[in-house]
Design a protein around this nucleic acid. Structure first.
Lengths: 337, 337
DNA sequence: TTGAAAGCGCTAACAA
DNA sequence: TTGTTAGCGCTTTCAA
């Protein structure tokens, strides 16, 4: 609990000198510096970042606003992988990470801006927020540097990182088309997700380019939830038995489709081809292993962190980063029969 | 960016009164309070927690020391689930979570105590640290309240949360014994993990109770790593073809065993029974689905957070929490033939 | 090369 | 019920 005051006293100098010595300023006698360093070590001094941040007006801290880190969503490594990427990066860039946890109830009490200002974070990374979340409006209006994951909004203090979801979805559909499928259903997420809007668009474009009519009856929302996807895909397949393939906007939902297909005695891939999205860890372990559009989630986290820190440090380059996806062919898709 | 000073000026009162009004002290006129609150709102005031923490000497912040949150360990939801439990709990208890990221290189520079003191965290939760980690020594010696996950060390300011790993392992072995297996190998983690020591002990006890000799040749270390486990289990099975069952100290390693068995043309469970540990999400999806000892990881996180907060708030009850595990029978074990 | 002094935004004795 | 004052630990002018 030693403070610079203690060191100053012990060294017989002023606190100013201690501060300067310890922070590597040049205008301090090397001998004094050595002595001070020595004493600091003996006293087991560690600087109080609170005090420092208070006066410097920056905290070297990045806020993390992650929704959906709850018990239910555990199958989805998605968030975790992003987290790993962020954490690895910020830690090597010497920023600390602080979790803002937002259950919706708390969100009522405290605005986004309040959250950030109270903790005085230098910047924020946001993941998993819905497009109709009131926080999103605030993010844009606020001048707090912020990087959004998978929400393509840019602003003076706002950047984002995402993948090309239109292209990804289009590639998924094209893969199915190439296999001869003409009747392709889609299990989408929900309307409050940008990625859902984009993946739907990709699906539509893919079909159109192949001169296949887009049919609203073929697309249903599974809310990015396995059970929900099971329900809606089962119904979809029952009412549209002509479907020979399904494109699911997430692997987790594809798990639900898998279950539905099984119950309907439609074997995958022979009676039904299935393409997922994300390439979560499970994708390669389920049976059959899932063909899917892989996103490098760790990289997304890493890039998000790098972008934010760059913004903080004034290297304001491009505030928009798009990462490639890649189609991973496994065993859930095959030629139409 | 309004401060209490601004409010004080606007309201024509002293900062003290503002502070008291906003913090719900009783000794302030209700009318004044209302007026102050009103003004605070208009000015979009949010308190500066840095300043507050500095003077109050507590931060309402919990440090999180998690090792192994790197790209490699992504199959292991283990950490993530614990994280979810912690996060949910601290957030409802109104503590913020701050990540201390420790790559070993940084650990050289900065001691555990320094880390905590700089950030002035009220307490710490530690997960995934090895028994020979120098930080561990510090944790015990330090007076910073700390909860360890899966490291059974108790102290004046240190509590822990774990499962009964001896019993868990014993139950795994007993399950195999009941199926008639006599030659049971074990893939353990590594010697720097308490849980490994304990699971080994459970394995040993299980055998002994059934009058089966413990055989050192039957146990190998897989470092909690899939590939490593693949390597050592393959060798184990080759040199000890009499083995009819394997107990793996983690599911991730069991994945490696699965691969090894396949390569050796030993079908699971018919030619080889396999019990894992953890019940990670993958366990129920691999083929065949893994019989395993399930730990409620989310609950572990939750309890850890609750315990720490209780310690912080002086409810010093019992600083030791042991959670039950349960044997989940799936399809990777069967009667010996 | 060093020190005195002010101030970051807040809380808390103590006095009025 | 309110205000004065000191101080948390640090950085940073400005002057010496």
């Amino acid at each position: 609990m030693a403070t610079i005051k203690d060191i100053a006293k012990a060294a017989g100098v002023s606190v100013t000198t201690v501060s300067r010595a310890l922070n590597g300023y040049s205008d301090v006698n090397e001998k004094t510096r050595e002595r001070i360093k020595q004493i600091a070590q003996e006293l087991q001094y560690s600087p109080n970042t609170l005090a420092r941040s208070l006066v410097m007006n920056k905290t070297k801290t990045i806020g993390l606003l992650v929704s959906g880190m709850t018990r239910g969503s555990i199958k989805d490594n998605f968030t975790y992988e992003i987290l790993c990427g962020i954490n690895d990066t910020t830690s090597s860039l010497d920023y600390d990470l602080i979790f803002f946890s937002t259950n919706t109830s708390k969100q009522k009490e405290k605005s986004y801006t309040q959250l950030c200002r109270e903790r005085k974070v230098d910047g924020v990374i946001i993941q998993g927020i819905k497009t109709d979340d009131p926080y999103l409006r605030e993010v844009i209006d606020s001048d707090i540097p912020c990087v959004l994951i998978d929400i393509p909004i840019e602003g003076a203090s706002v950047g984002y990182i995402t993948t090309d979801n239109v292209l990804g979805a289009k590639n998924a559909v094209k893969h199915l088309l190439q296999l001869g499928h003409k009747h392709i259903g889609m299990i989408n997420g929900h309307n409050q997700a940008f990625v859902s809007q984009q993946r739907l668009e990709g699906y539509r474009l893919g079909l159109i380019e192949d001169n296949i009519d887009f049919n609203w009856n073929y697309v249903v929302n599974g809310a990015f939830d396995e059970d929900q996807a099971y329900l809606v895909s089962k119904k979809l397949l029952q009412t549209n038995p002509q479907l020979t393939a399904i494109f699911s906007a997430s692997d987790v939902m594809a798990l639900g489709v898998l279950r539905a297909a099984k119950e309907l005695n439609r074997s995958i891939p022979d009676d039904l081809s299935l393409v997922g999205y994300d390439d979560i860890v499970l994708a390669s372990y389920v049976s059959p292993p899932l063909t899917t559009i892989a996103q490098d989630k760790y990289l997304m986290g890493q890039k998000a962190a790098e972008l934010l820190v760059a913004m903080l440090q004034g290297g304001i380059e491009e505030r928009r980063i798009v990462i490639d996806t890649v189609l991973v062919e496994r065993s859930s898709t095959t030629k139409v029969n």
